[in-house]
Each structure stands twice: as structure tokens, then as C-alpha cells.
Design a protein around this nucleic acid. Structure first.
Lengths: 222, 222
DNA sequence: CGCAAGCTTAAGAATTGCTTAAGCGGCGAA
DNA sequence: TTCGCCGCTTAAGCAATTCTTAAGCTTGCG
């Protein structure tokens, strides 16, 4: 799950990036409006965290341009305590939620989670597919009522596949979820994670579509 | 278009039912959580309007059970003005939108419309022709309710032909679907794929138009 | 009847994915 | 701080499938 953080303050940006990484997101960090605008147009982010005071192009402008291009990703804006006006204008311009600085990293992560979930529409907090239950918030997976542990990346792959149950995800699509800019891999990492998932759960869970990608089939029943 | 309204307050429920009927929906009205839960499991609703405070089973519980059964219909929850917590928990439990009481009937109708549109847009369109069903997203083909496997290229050929059912595709047009620039083949590859398709499905599915190309005829009946 | 277009088959080539294992780096414990 | 563990990334060999090609055969049409 990939998030774009747009924040010009180095200290704060660093903290946000670190905190969100901790929560398992792949985080890109842009420090001005123009780069952010561009990145939002090209990369498949699940959400954006946007400070309104930015150099080169204001956060509000970034937001407006985003919406005018009909890109519906959830945007959470960061505002100073005293700028109620900004907050209102942000929400008017299409922001989905806001947080007043200073804020707690846990809360930011929680809100992002809620936003992403809501945006993806039909996703409940716990995903149930093929007897596997995955709780994104708790970073927990249950199979046959037993908790199974997954390291961050394995979890992310499983999450992506379960979110898209019934749809094929190409290896490239999965990689985009796992890695932020400049930390792409060039190996068969995804294959290895798939292998681990199959071993810890059961092999039939994930189907291979040769030359296309991977897929967790939708349940028919239940 | 059928909508389920779950609301225990007689006055409000009546108003909602009337208002939505006005907007052209067929409206069922349940007054407690248990009946609603049951109805949602059996009837094909396009969306649900859910009050969170319900007798017998709370709205939140209804929602959770709905999602745990992987039923992805859009749910709009109704919350009291002061219960921000409920709203959050509702969204966390998989609601798609919310409305704070009291609300305007026009707005409710508008939001439902938006939700339904969004939800139906996400359903990947399956192609049905001549008893063959092809789901692009799942990379899956069903014939006589049996799944049949196709390697990437064969699938691509079938997909192209079904997308253009009733129209002749030249061999060159089919090849364009299969190969990126600079990797054209110079052989009878397409003929070979056509042959495989005919064998796995049935020979009459694909007609040969000599000197022109290939064609899957349109069904007369659906 | 003869030719061209398309069908069928088969086999080698190429690609793709699976599996295993090892090195590396970070993080926590001692 | 140092050590050891764990997770992440690579790499390489192997197995299987898929792709391409070509050759011979069949069919339809003039």
C-alpha cells in the first residue's frame, strides 16, 4: 500500500514517513507542490497526506488540480491549529479528512486506514476469503482460527491479493504496492513471498496465471 | 433497483420509504436487525440504508455480518448528530457513506445514486457470447459452468474475438492484440491459437471468413 | 482440376515460475 | 558495544508450460 506524503518541513516529513513505514505503508515523500502534483498523476497511491503550506504550489492548489483530473484518491490534509479557514477550504476543495498539528502518529495511521478502506468501497475491516481472515489494522491473519505471523512484506502481498480477490494482479502491480520510489527491487522477490504465503497457508490459495500474474479466487459460497 | 431500508423508527422509516419510492427505487423496509440480516442474505439489494440503533441486533452488527459474508453492496448509515464515534465505527465496519439525522430526502437519494453507480462500476464486466463467459479481470473462462484454462496468448485471442463479437477481425488485427511493437511474428501463430480455442471450446464458436479473418457470431438470444 | 488459404500436428526453443539457499543489514538482547 | 536473530533481497538451477515455427494435409473456390 503506497502513500504519498507532501510536506515541506524536513523534521515533520521525516517523522511521518518513518511512522507510516512502521505501519507497513510504502511511503513517498515530496517536498513541494509541483513535484507532488506530478507524482500524483503518475503513481498509483492509495492515499495522500497533504500539508497545505507548501513552496512552488500551495497544497490547496495541488488538491484542486488533483480533483479536477478526477483522481479520487483519499486526501488527508494537515493544518495548523489556528487556521480554521484553511481547513474549511481544504475540505471544500475535496479533502477527505484533516488533522490538526501537532498530531499523534497512531491517529494519522488510523485515519488513513479508514480513508483507504472507505475509498476502496467494498472492503470491510477484516477481509475474509477462502477461510483466511486478514485484519489490516491489527496486522493479523487468522487461518482455521489460528493466528499466523507474517513479516511486513509478506503481509502486504497477501493484503493486496485479498483486497483484489477475484482479480489478477500482475507482478508489477504487486511490486508497486510494496515499494516506494527508488527502492524498487529487481529480482524475484514477489515470487519468493508468494512461495512463503503458500507454505504458511495452503498452496491452492494463490493461483498462478502464467504470463499474467497471481490471483486469489473469490469464494462462491459462505 | 431494490433498496433495503433498516430503521426502527416508524415515522422516519415511513418517510424514507416514501421518499425513495418517489425517486424510483423499490424499497423494502425492515424494523429490526435480525430480519434485516436475513433479508440481506437472501434478497438481491442494490444498496442498504442502515440506522445504527436497532432492536434485536445493532446496526453495527448487521453491517459486520454483511461484510464477513463478502456481500459487497453499498451501505449508507444514518447516525445521530452527536454520535461521531458511531459514525467512525460504522465506516470502520465497512459502511460506504453516512448521513447525519436529520437529513434531506433529496440528499439521501443523491448519495444512494452515487454509491450504486460506484459499486456497479467496480464490478468487472464479464463477456457472454454463445454460452461462453469470459471474465477479463479474473482471467477466467467458463463454458457450461466449467472453468477452462487458457494460456495468456490464447486468452488474448479469445478476448479480442469476444469483445468484437459479430465483427470480423483480420489476422493482422488479432496480432496487434498479441504482440508489442517490434516483436511481431511471421508465422501462422494466430491460426494455431484459433485451433486451440476451437478444440477446447467447440469448433463452431469461431467462424473463418476466407481471405478476411475470424469472427465469433453474435448470439441471437442473450 | 489446380491453386491458395486455412487446418492440424509435432517438435524444438524460449519463457516463466518454483524452490532453495546464502549474504546482508537492522534491531534488540545480553 | 557486540552478538545473534530475523526479515529482505538476490541468485541460480530445475521443471514445466507456453510459444513459435514449419511441414504436410484438407478444403474451398475459380
Amino acid at each position: 500500500m503506497r502513500i504519498l506524503v507532501i510536506e515541506d518541513d524536513a523534521l515533520l516529513g521525516d517523522a511521518i514517513q518513518a511512522g507510516l513505514k512502521q505501519s507497513g505503508y510504502a511511503v513517498d515523500w515530496m517536498k513541494d507542490g509541483v513535484s507532488a502534483d506530478q507524482a500524483l498523476g503518475t503513481e498509483p497511491y492509495a492515499a495522500a497526506v497533504l500539508d497545505l503550506g507548501l513552496p512552488r504550489m500551495s497544497g490547496l492548489e495541488v488538491l484542486k488540480r488533483l480533483r479536477s483530473r478526477n483522481i479520487p484518491i483519499p486526501v488527508l490534509i494537515l493544518t495548523a491549529m489556528d487556521s480554521v479557514d484553511d481547513r474549511i477550504r481544504g475540505l471544500d476543495a475535496g479533502a477527505d479528512d484533516y488533522l490538526v498539528k501537532p498530531f499523534d502518529m497512531g491517529e494519522l495511521a488510523a485515519r488513513l486506514r479508514a480513508l483507504v478502506r472507505r475509498a476502496s468501497g467494498k472492503t470491510s475491516p477484516a477481509l475474509h476469503v477462502a477461510g483466511v481472515e486478514l485484519e489490516p489494522a491489527a496486522h493479523r491473519v487468522l487461518y482455521r482460527d489460528k493466528a499466523i505471523e507474517f513479516p511486513a512484506k509478506e503481509f502486504a502481498v497477501l493484503h493486496a491479493l485479498m483486497l483484489n480477490a477475484g482479480r489478477v494482479l500482475s507482478r508489477a502491480q504487486i511490486e508497486e504496492q510494496l515499494y516506494a520510489w527508488g527502492e524498487e527491487v529487481e529480482s524475484n522477490a514477489v515470487e519468493v513471498y508468494i512461495h512463503h504465503l503458500r507454505r504458511k497457508l495452503f498452496p491452492e490459495l494463490i493461483e498462478t496465471i502464467r504470463g499474467v500474474g497471481y490471483l486469489i479466487p473469490n469464494d462462491k459460497n459462505v
